[in-house]
Amino acid sequence: MSPSHHGTEPVFDVTGVTKVYTSGEVEVRALAGIDLQLFAGEIAVLLGPSGSGKSTLLNIIGGLDRATSGSVLFNGRDLTDFSDRQLTRFRRDHIGFVFQFYNLIPSLTAWENVSLVTEVARDPMTPDEALAMVNLTDRMSHFPAQLSGGEQQRVAIARAIAKRPEVLLCDEPTGALDSKTGVIVLEALTRINTEFGTTTAIITHNAGIQQIAHRVFQFLDGRIASMHVNEARIAATEVEW
């Protein structure tokens, strides 16, 4: 079932967002005017080839980068007006990030990697709870080098969700994984979405993954070429690529 949008304000309301990078004399237009809304509790998949603007948009709505023009409303507040300090607080309090490469600290165990976040969050779950959500209870004292790629990615997801973020932003979370392992990672993401109602945006160039989404945005050349609603979503376990 798709979450009902009737009467719900979007968590994110992106209007006319552009991003231009200047390198010497050359201007590169990474985003050429994006309009997009993300609603509470939905999984949105942002699909498209490399260089189509997906990561740039994710970084802007996550407060890691700033738009050149346009507005980005988060629960009605415009991030484009935020100071650097406000953006840092916004990321810390509201957003969980998952990237293609897991960014774990090699000298810390899985449990310790997650606890880095729980020590500074406002209302965290315990590292034990977060690792249980991704089915890694029996691996929590292992170091990253002792874990498979899929296990490392699930530690990264546990770290992202441990602070109970309203929004989970995932950039190619299965990009470094084979399909069997990738499905386990997608299962973790869909479970978190179901159990916590975490608004989730997943960037991928992998068309098979769109089937777990409530809505799918197709990116091309810095624009959204199309958006469609999935009337019949499938379980992560059924995804094939």
Rank of each mutant, 00 (worst) to 15 (best):
residue 87 L to I: 06
residue 72 V to I: 13
residue 116 L to A: 07
residue 124 P to I: 09
residue 101 F to M: 15
residue 84 D to M: 08
residue 113 N to I: 05
residue 74 F to H: 00
residue 116 L to Q: 04
residue 116 L to C: 07
residue 79 L to I: 12
residue 89 R to L: 14
residue 118 T to Y: 04
residue 126 T to S: 15
residue 65 D to Q: 09
residue 76 G to Q: 08
residue 69 S to Y: 03
residue 108 L to W: 15
residue 114 V to C: 13
residue 76 G to R: 06
residue 78 D to C: 08
residue 53 G to Q: 09
residue 82 F to A: 08
residue 69 S to E: 05
residue 83 S to M: 14
residue 62 G to F: 00
residue 96 G to C: 06
residue 97 F to N: 05
residue 86 Q to C: 11
residue 97 F to S: 06
residue 104 L to P: 04
residue 66 R to K: 04
residue 120 V to A: 12
residue 72 V to C: 11
residue 57 L to F: 02
residue 84 D to N: 14
residue 101 F to G: 14
residue 70 G to Y: 06
residue 66 R to W: 04
residue 98 V to C: 07
residue 76 G to T: 05
residue 126 T to Q: 09
residue 113 N to C: 02
residue 100 Q to I: 12
residue 114 V to H: 09
residue 55 S to T: 08
residue 104 L to M: 13
residue 82 F to E: 02
residue 72 V to E: 02
residue 121 A to S: 13
residue 113 N to W: 05
residue 106 P to V: 14
residue 55 S to G: 06
residue 52 S to K: 01
residue 97 F to K: 02
residue 99 F to D: 11
residue 110 A to L: 09
residue 101 F to C: 12
residue 56 T to S: 14
residue 107 S to V: 15
residue 79 L to S: 05
residue 66 R to M: 06
residue 77 R to L: 09
residue 53 G to H: 05
residue 102 Y to Q: 14
residue 56 T to Y: 07
residue 61 I to A: 00
residue 53 G to F: 07
residue 64 L to F: 07
residue 116 L to Y: 04
residue 121 A to T: 12
residue 87 L to P: 02
residue 60 I to T: 03
residue 77 R to F: 02
residue 111 W to P: 10
residue 60 I to K: 00
residue 105 I to A: 15
residue 120 V to P: 02
residue 115 S to T: 09
residue 117 V to W: 05
residue 109 T to N: 08
residue 85 R to C: 09
residue 100 Q to H: 08
residue 74 F to G: 00
residue 106 P to M: 13
residue 57 L to S: 02
residue 90 F to W: 01
residue 60 I to Q: 03
residue 111 W to T: 14
residue 67 A to F: 07
residue 87 L to G: 10
residue 55 S to M: 05
residue 103 N to Y: 15
residue 92 R to T: 08
residue 85 R to L: 15
residue 59 N to R: 01
residue 84 D to E: 15
residue 102 Y to H: 15
residue 109 T to F: 00
residue 101 F to E: 12
residue 113 N to K: 01
residue 52 S to L: 07
residue 93 D to L: 13
residue 88 T to H: 10
residue 124 P to C: 08
residue 68 T to H: 05
residue 112 E to V: 02
residue 98 V to Y: 11
residue 114 V to Q: 12
residue 110 A to C: 13
